[in-house]
């Protein structure tokens, strides 16, 4: 079977998982439904010939689920049966459906599936292994051609995690006294 049919199947699965994650009342079930979306994304990456991304997405999804479950599922006093504002939901549905219809016209202008405009990629694919000596071309891009990007990226990671430490630590010290 061609790749497109499998991708339609996986994407339908992911959409069902996303809607379930937003509508389920139980916190643990909602987090696991988001896990469905992330693991479906990992399988979709495998079908789209990106094994690097499939591995990274799989591993990060597992860690993300562990973090969310440990953070949120132990609060027994928390009730999740919050009703959304009906007027707000109606307005959001109308606006988002208009955006979706406009999106149909916008996506027609893109190159169709399977025929990308890979102008820069040609140089990476033909000269990359000789210039960097790395058999994995994705690694040669993130750590040689665009290593400055990766430096900015680990700075963002460092900053966000430093923010998490700061937020969590202040409370811990206050209550220790």
């Amino acid at each position: 079977m061609p790749v497109e049919i499998w991708l339609h199947f996986i994407l339908g699965f992911m959409i069902i998982g996303a809607i379930a994650a937003l509508e389920i009342k139980d916190v643990l079930s909602a987090i696991i439904a988001v896990g469905i979306v992330g693991l479906g994304l990992s399988v979709a990456f495998l079908f789209l010939q990106a094994p690097d991304l499939a591995l990274v997405q799989f591993v990060f999804e597992i860690l993300c689920m562990i973090i969310l479950i440990r953070a949120f599922t132990h609060r027994k006093e928390h009730k999740i049966d919050l009703k959304s504002n009906v007027v707000l939901v109606a307005i959001a549905v109308v606006i988002l459906s208009v955006v979706f219809v406009l999106g149909i016209f916008a996506f027609k202008e893109l190159p169709s599936f399977g025929k990308p405009i890979a102008r820069i990629a040609e140089r990476y694919l033909t000269k990359g292994p000789q210039e960097t000596g790395s058999a994995n071309i994705v690694t040669s891009i993130i750590l040689d051609y665009r290593a400055y990007d990766t430096l900015g990226e680990i700075t963002v990671l460092f900053t966000s995690i430093l923010g998490a430490f700061t937020i969590l630590r202040v409370i811990g010290r206050k209550q220790r006294r």
Binding site: L55, G133, A135, N136
Partner: peptide, 9 residues
């Protein structure tokens, strides 16, 4: 640098 994966994974 030889197989899928890398530092992050």
């Amino acid at each position: 640098h030889l197989t899928p994966g890398g530092g992050f994974a």
